[in-house]
Write a protein that binds this DNA or RNA. Sequence first.
DNA 1: GAGTGGTCTAGACCACCCA
DNA 2: GGGTGGTCTAGACCACTCA
Lengths: 258, 258
Amino acid sequence: MANRTSTFRGPPAHPERTGPAEPLASRPLYLQARDLLLRRIVDGTWKPGGYLPSEPQLALDLGVSIGTIRKAMEDLVGQGLLERQHGRGTQVVPHSSDRSRFRFLRFVHGDGRPFRPVAHVLSAGTVRADAQDRAALGQGVGAKVLVLLRTRSEDGVPLIYERIALPADSFAALKPEPGAEMLEEIYVLYQARCGQTVARARDTIATDRAGPPVADALGCPPGTPLLLVRRVAVALTGDPIEYRQSWTAALHYRSDLD
Amino acid sequence: MANRTSTFRGPPAHPERTGPAEPLASRPLYLQARDLLLRRIVDGTWKPGGYLPSEPQLALDLGVSIGTIRKAMEDLVGQGLLERQHGRGTQVVPHSSDRSRFRFLRFVHGDGRPFRPVAHVLSAGTVRADAQDRAALGQGVGAKVLVLLRTRSEDGVPLIYERIALPADSFAALKPEPGAEMLEEIYVLYQARCGQTVARARDTIATDRAGPPVADALGCPPGTPLLLVRRVAVALTGDPIEYRQSWTAALHYRSDLD
DNA sequence: GAGTGGTCTAGACCACCCA
DNA sequence: GGGTGGTCTAGACCACTCA
């Protein structure tokens, strides 16, 4: 019979019914279906880059109609989590895809040209979270964070100096390996090495002046006015997993409101 | 029978058909329906704040099924142009609605508190567009723009200095009335007085230093590092209709990536 | 209670991808 | 040619709003 929790009925309980769905307590079926799909993406049943079962298959599995499955998927597609390819199937979008990449890369040159950076890690280590880290990541006093300091350059010219703080326990797998090369697209690493998928982020942009480490890394005089972008990135689960500060003197920040 | 242009068939041409829709040449019906709805919103058939006909009525009018109408509407709802209210109807969202208001107001205080400004117009007049105006608005040499200079204050403290350039011909109705009060929510005026609805905008954020007019308006020393936000706002038709520069010393810019 | 949008189903045909 | 997603229809019932 109908079920108060978010389980689905198996094969239709009342095949003779021609009308609407089983009442199923409360939440609409397509929301339950969406959450279930999301859960399977989060827990790795379907890996980034992998394909989901076909719509008829999923409909059969969950005991709902194809239309309901489609509606659930549309939601996840809208969030940029799934990508549907006509004739091929439905894929879990990896952060390495073009669409994902530029969703989180908002820096452009002053003339509007896209910024295509290469990252270089200066240092990586686990330290006690400072007050800002704790506030951004929702952690308690004494919590540990993995801190990466890096520059992002184009044609060998460092244009961004970045400090990234990550909860130390969830990101142990990202740890040092001192001197190792590090991917520019670090969200791909979060996903591949730590199973953490960035779902969305909030940037706050302010002006700042170059302190010694920043001035040194960017090769500008201390006190130079800079753009400072603070980012809190949130996982699929809704937990904040990254607090990032990016300083730049030359680049602009692009924001599309639509 | 089928029609190459974007007209709809009247009452179903083949009522006996049980299967899919009339082939109708090329573009999917729901896209044609969406464009038609959009056109009627743009041309003022349905005014901001007004209600559309019901779904069954629209389906009848356009000769398509309700599902197709719904799909067309979902698109426009997603763009923030329509708002559906269960049991009441579907409304053309006016820019004065809360949702619309905060979609285009991205400034916050340094501590994250929302910024709730009051606008004060310093001057308004028609001038020759400068190179930046022309580039942003896609105009030719010698084009005229209506330029508004204004501050946006909270508790009487001016926190933003703003220069807004608008194509002079489309915005004649917004003209001076020297010394008149001006709504903070200027996009409401564009819509009500000039029939121009802002569909989306692109902001580019950079640092700048306070020139004399800005320093004067904001009460800071010339040369103070500022945040400069350049906005190009686009109408429903896709034409750029506003080029805006906003300077602020104290406020931050908030960007949600999701 | 009449009318509106919200959910759900079932089934048809089309367009695309790939073996 | 078989399988996948894309479009479209028709119709049922539910839930909300308002008179």
